[in-house]
Amino acid sequence: DKHFVVALYDYTAMNDRDLQMLKGEKLQVLKGTGDWWLARSLVTGREGYVPSNFVARVE
């Protein structure tokens, strides 16, 4: 069951495990537990961690 989110804010990666994203960017959540979610950008195809409070679910 795939679940998708949209970035509510720009996020600048703090290290090489984070995923940089721009407000409005759509992401697929690969692992969504805790404060940091592993996601893949549908724009760039890159994977990394994003802060869960920076994204909102897309139905």
Rank of each mutant, 00 (worst) to 15 (best):
G34A: 05
L38T: 07
E25N: 01
V58C: 13
T44F: 00
N53R: 13
D35P: 13
E47F: 04
A56Y: 05
N53Q: 07
G32A: 14
R57L: 06
S41I: 04
Y49Q: 04
K31F: 05
T33G: 14
R40G: 01
Q28M: 08
T33V: 13
G24S: 02
K2Y: 08
A39R: 01
L38Y: 14
Y49A: 00
L8Y: 02
D35V: 09
G48R: 02
Y11R: 14
W36A: 09
L42R: 02
G45F: 05
R17A: 09
N15G: 13
M21V: 12
N15C: 12
T44W: 02
G48D: 03
A7C: 05
R40M: 03
L27V: 04
D18E: 15
L30N: 02
H3P: 09
K26M: 10
Y11E: 03
Y9I: 08
G45L: 07
K2N: 15
L8R: 11
D18G: 13
E25F: 04
Y49F: 12
V50R: 05
Y11I: 02
N15A: 11
E25T: 03
L30V: 08
V43Y: 07
M14L: 13
L42E: 09
R17K: 14
H3Q: 13
Y9Q: 15
W37Y: 13
H3E: 14
S41M: 02
Y11P: 03
G48L: 04
R17N: 14
P51K: 08
R46V: 06
Q20H: 09
G34W: 00
A39S: 04
R46K: 15
A13F: 04
K2A: 07
R57M: 07
K23N: 05
D35E: 12
V29R: 04
G24C: 00
K23F: 00
Q28L: 14
D10I: 01
D35Y: 12
T12M: 12
S52P: 06
R46N: 08
K26I: 04
V43G: 06
A13H: 03
E59N: 13
W37P: 01
P51Q: 06
Y11T: 06
R46G: 07
E25M: 04
G48V: 01
L38F: 12
K2M: 11
D16G: 11
V6L: 08
E47M: 06
S41K: 04
W37G: 03
R57G: 14
L19I: 06
R57Y: 09
N15F: 09
Y11V: 05
V29A: 03
D16M: 08
M14Q: 15
V55R: 01
Y9V: 13
L8G: 02
N15L: 05
K26A: 07
A56Q: 13
Q28S: 05
G48N: 00
N15P: 04
L42G: 04
M21S: 00
F54H: 15
V43Q: 13
R17V: 07
L30H: 03
Q20E: 13
F4E: 09
V58I: 13
P51W: 03
E59D: 14
Q20C: 13
S52Q: 12
R46H: 07
T33Y: 10
G45V: 02
L8S: 06
F54S: 15
R40V: 04
K23W: 02
Q28T: 06
S41G: 00
D1G: 12
V55T: 08
D10T: 05
V6G: 04
L8I: 09
D16C: 10
W37F: 14
V29T: 02
R17Y: 10
S41P: 01
F54N: 06
N15K: 11
T12H: 13
T33M: 09
A39G: 03
T12W: 10
W36F: 13
K26C: 09
Y9T: 13
D10A: 04
V6D: 04
V6H: 08
E59G: 12
R57K: 14
Q20G: 15
V6S: 06
D18V: 07
A39H: 05
T33R: 09
K31Q: 14
Y9R: 15
A13S: 13
D16R: 09
W36L: 13
T44Q: 03
D35C: 10
K26N: 10
L27F: 14
L27G: 05
L8T: 06
S52F: 05
T44V: 00
L30Y: 06
D35S: 11
A7M: 01
G45W: 02
D1L: 08
L38G: 02
D35G: 07
G45R: 07
G45D: 06
D10Y: 03
L22I: 11
G48Q: 00
Y9W: 09
L19K: 03
L8N: 03
A56I: 08
Q28G: 02
D18A: 11
R40L: 04
M21K: 01
K31E: 15
L38M: 08
M21A: 01
F4H: 07
E59I: 07
S41T: 00
R17Q: 14
A7E: 01
L38W: 13
D16I: 08
V43C: 10
